[in-house]
Design a protein around this nucleic acid. Structure first.
Lengths: 350, 350
DNA sequence: CTGAAAGCGCTTACAG
DNA sequence: CTGAAAGCGCTTACAG
C-alpha cells in the first residue's frame, strides 16, 4: 500500500490565515485575533479582516487551531441510537450551538456487552481528537470515573444524579418526582397494584431515583404492600420474558410502570399477545414521551422529561466550562405526565 | 472573557511522540513510521517502539496528525435521528472500523426546512475538522453537488442511485426490486388495489427507483389500472392527513405500500382510528424492517434492506478510497420481504 | 492597538 | 533500514 496522500487534494487549494493577512494587509496574529473575537483589535482592522475572509471564503482548520487552542468541537456520547428520545436531546444541543462556532460530533455506544469498556474507548477516541469538552448522556460508569474525566476536560453529564465535586456539571430530569407522578396518576385512575419494570443492572443513579420515588409514593398513598419491582436489561428478549412472567403470575398487577417507552412498547406487545386488554386488564405507563406514544396502536401514557431542554442546557453549560468556569452547576427539569389511553380511568370491576 | 486555556490541562501532561522516541532510543521519525505502519522499519525497531508506546500509554493526537497526514476520523452524515434504521447502518460502520485506527463521528441534519442549506453547513464543518472521508446517508442534494464534494475528499454515498463518474462510491439496496417484491407479495396474498405512499419532494433517486419498481410490477401483474401514488413529507401531520384522505376516498385501496416503517406506523394508527381492521380492510407494508415491526401492535410486514451490511460495506469502501483508490465502485444489496400479519393472506370477501 | 517569532505534535521528503 | 530538519496552519506570549 503506497504512502500517497489522496486525502488532501492539491495543497494550497485551501485558503490559510496567511493569505487572509496578506489580502487585508495586516499581520497573521491580527487575523487570528479577529477569528477568536479576542480583545485588542480596532474596529477598522476587524472590518478589513472580515472583508478579506469573506472575499476569499476563508475557513479556519479545526486541527490547526486545536494544536494550541480550541477545536471548537464538542463530543456527544449517547448510550444507544435506537431510542428516539435521544434525538430530542440532540436537537437541543444543536439549538444551543447554532449561533456559536462550536460544532457537535456524536459517538454512540452500540456494542452491547462490555459497556464500560466500549464507552471508555469512545471517550479516549474523542480526547485524541481534541474535543473541547464532552456531553455524556446516560453514562454507565462509576461516578469516580466521571470525576477523573472531568479533571481532564470540560464535562457535562445528562442523566446522572450523583455529583463529582466541581469536576463536572449535571443536567437531569427529576426522576424521583417523575416516578411519584406516575404512581399518583395511576392511583388517581383507579389502579393500585402497580408494578415497576426497571432496568438491570441498576447501578445508575437515575434508576435508583426512580425506584425510590416509586417506593415512597406507593407507601405514602397506602399501597406499600403492593410494591413490586422487577428488572430487565434493554435486550428485547429479556424484556419480553420478564413482562410475560410478571403478567402470568398468580397475582397479576393492575398496572406496569416501565423504565422507558421502548420497554413499554414491548410490554404492550406481550400483553396483546397474551390476549390481555389495555388498560382494562393491565395499564401501561412509559417514560420519555417519545413520538411513538401518540400512535393509536400504542396510545402510551408517558412521562415527558423535555429532552430538548436537557440538551440545550447541557450544551450551554459546557460552553461556559470551556470558557473557564471551574465550579459545578446542576440543572434539574421538572417532569410532566402525559395522559393517554394506555392508563386511562379504570372501569368499575364486575 | 479572559483568554485562559482551561481546555488543555497542564501541558506536558500528555505523552508525545518525542518522549516515546526518547524512551525507545530511536528517532521521532521512526516512531511516526511505526504509528502509521509504514514500510522501512525493522522488526526489532518496531518492537522496541511498540513497547515504549505501551509502557508510556502513548496515544497520538489526531489534530497533530491531521496537520500533515490523516486524522483517522471519518464523518457520517445522517438525514435524521428518529428512524431506528440508521442505528443499523451505524453498527455496520462501526463493525468495519473496529480493528482499524479509524473512528466515525456522526452529524445529523435535524433542522427541517432548508435541508440543503443545513446539510452543506454540516459538510463544511466536517471538512473544517479534517475528516479523512465522508459517508453520507440518504442525501437530499443534487448529484452534481455530490460530484463536486467527491472531488474534494473521499466520499461514499448510501441511498443514491445516480452516479457521479469516479467522484464517489455508492452503496444501495436494490430499491426497484424492493418495490417489486412488495407488489408481488401483496398480490400473492390476494390484494390488488395497492396504493403507494411515497415521499415528497420526490427528487431522490431512491424514491424514483421504488416508484418505478412499483409501477412496472403493477403493470406486469395486470394491475396497471390500480396504480395510485400519493406523497407526503416526513412530517407526522402531513402523513396523517394523506393517509386519512387515501382511506376515506370512494375507491379505498386494499393495501398501502409505505415509504418507510415510520410512515407505515402512522398509517396503522390512522386506519385504527378510522375503525378499519388491518389487514382485513387494508393491508400495510413498510420499508426498512426496523425493530418495531415485530411488536404485536404493529406486526408490520416490511422490506429488509440490511442496514448493517450497507454500513459495513460503505465504511470499507471509504477506507479503500482514503488509501488511494480513485475509481468508483458501486455496491448493491438485494432486499428481502419479511412477511407479517399487517399484510397476511386476504380472507375471502363476503 | 499591532506584529514578528516561537511553538503545538505530528508527517514528509531527503540524506545517509 | 534509520534519523535530522522542515513544515502543516494556527495561537500565544512578548516586544514595540
Amino acid at each position: 500500500m503506497s504512502e500517497k496522500e489522496p486525502t488532501a487534494p492539491r495543497s494550497g487549494e485551501r485558503i490559510t490565515i496567511r493569505e487572509v493577512a496578506q489580502d487585508a494587509g495586516v499581520s497573521v496574529a491580527a487575523v487570528s485575533k479577529v477569528l477568536r473575537d479576542a480583545y485588542g483589535v480596532s474596529d477598522a482592522l476587524r472590518a478589513k479582516v472580515r472583508a478579506s475572509m469573506e472575499k476569499l471564503s476563508y475557513r479556519p482548520r479545526a486541527s490547526a487551531r486545536g494544536m494550541r487552542g480550541r477545536t471548537y468541537t464538542i463530543g456527544l456520547i449517547f448510550p444507544d441510537l435506537r431510542n428516539p428520545f435521544f434525538a430530542d436531546i440532540y436537537s437541543g444541543v444543536n439549538a444551543a450551538l447554532e449561533r456559536t462556532q462550536y460544532q457537535a460530533m456524536q459517538g454512540i455506544n452500540t456494542t452491547s456487552g462490555a459497556l464500560n469498556m466500549t464507552s471508555s474507548a469512545l471517550i479516549e477516541a474523542m480526547i485524541d481528537r481534541q474535543m473541547d469538552g464532552l456531553v455524556i448522556i446516560g453514562p454507565n460508569m462509576e461516578t469516580q470515573v466521571l470525576t477523573d474525566l472531568g479533571a481532564r476536560l470540560p464535562l457535562v453529564v445528562i442523566g446522572q444524579h450523583d455529583r463529582g465535586g466541581d469536576a463536572f456539571d449535571t443536567v437531569n430530569n427529576d426522576d424521583q418526582l417523575g416516578a411519584r407522578l406516575v404512581v399518583r396518576y395511576l392511583m388517581g385512575n383507579g389502579y393500585r397494584k402497580i408494578a415497576m419494570l426497571s432496568l438491570s443492572p441498576s447501578n445508575s443513579s437515575i434508576i435508583q431515583q426512580r425506584e425510590i420515588g416509586y417506593r415512597l409514593e406507593m407507601m405514602e398513598l397506602g399501597a406499600g404492600d403492593a410494591i413490586n419491582i422487577v428488572r430487565a436489561s434493554q435486550v428485547v428478549r429479556d424484556v419480553q420474558v420478564t413482562v410475560r412472567r410478571l403478567l402470568s403470575g398468580p397475582d397479576r398487577p393492575d398496572a406496569i410502570f416501565c423504565w422507558t417507552d421502548l420497554m413499554a412498547f414491548e410490554a404492550i406487545s406481550v400483553a396483546t399477545e397474551m390476549g390481555l386488554s389495555i388498560p382494562e386488564d393491565v395499564a401501561i405507563v412509559g417514560y420519555d414521551n417519545t413520538m411513538f406514544c401518540d400512535l393509536a396502536q400504542n396510545s402510551l401514557a408517558s412521562v415527558d422529561q423535555s429532552g430538548e431542554l436537557l440538551g440545550l442546557q447541557a450544551a450551554r453549560m459546557l460552553v461556559e466550562r470551556i470558557d473557564g468556569r471551574v465550579t459545578a452547576e446542576h440543572f434539574m427539569v421538572p417532569p410532566r405526565i402525559v395522559a393517554r389511553a394506555s392508563a386511562g380511568p379504570r372501569q368499575p370491576q364486575d
